[in-house]
Design a protein around this nucleic acid. Structure first.
Length: 120
DNA sequence: CGGCTTTGACCCGCGC
DNA sequence: GCGCGGGTCAAAGCCG
């Protein structure tokens, strides 16, 4: 059986968020992501950020794409699969991908990409 | 002090 | 065959 997840999958899921709906609240999956690159794709006229799971056993990747003129509209693309549960250790049971309603804001993507909170 | 983040440069693949 | 784009890695800096 397919023990190892088929790396053939390019993009798993795409989610779109807009400020008017969630108001600067990226869907924190509860995973720890490490930004390893950011580039402006003129082909689509958008900025693309690349995130990777910090776990060594986790090959999951996260991609953030938004327009420089509309940073409120961010498209998150999840690539790969997580081999470990979320850091949000709540119910060590099943993590339903159906409702990822995690209110965990430990990682603010907006703070990572749009500008860290420089509070003095 | 450690950890994480950021930027630049380099590399490879594909298209024509 | 060459050029360009996209993607990744590395190093350094800063913050808590």
């Amino acid at each position: 059986m397919a023990d190892a997840p088929p790396p053939t999958a390019s993009v798993e899921i795409e989610e779109e968020f807009d400020e008017g709906s969630n108001l600067l609240s990226l869907p924190e999956d509860g995973y720890a992501w490490k930004k390893y690159g950011q580039k402006f794709i003129k082909n689509i006229g958008k900025v693309r950020s690349y995130f990777r799971c910090q776990r060594s056993d986790c090959t999951a990747k996260k991609r953030a794409e938004w327009s420089p003129s509309n940073v409120a509209n961010v498209r998150i693309i999840y690539e790969g699969t997580h081999s470990h549960a979320t850091e949000n250790s709540s119910s060590s049971s099943s993590q339903e991908a159906t409702s990822a309603s995690s209110v965990a804001n430990q990682y603010n993507l907006y703070n990572q990409v749009f500008g860290r909170q420089n509070n003095t």
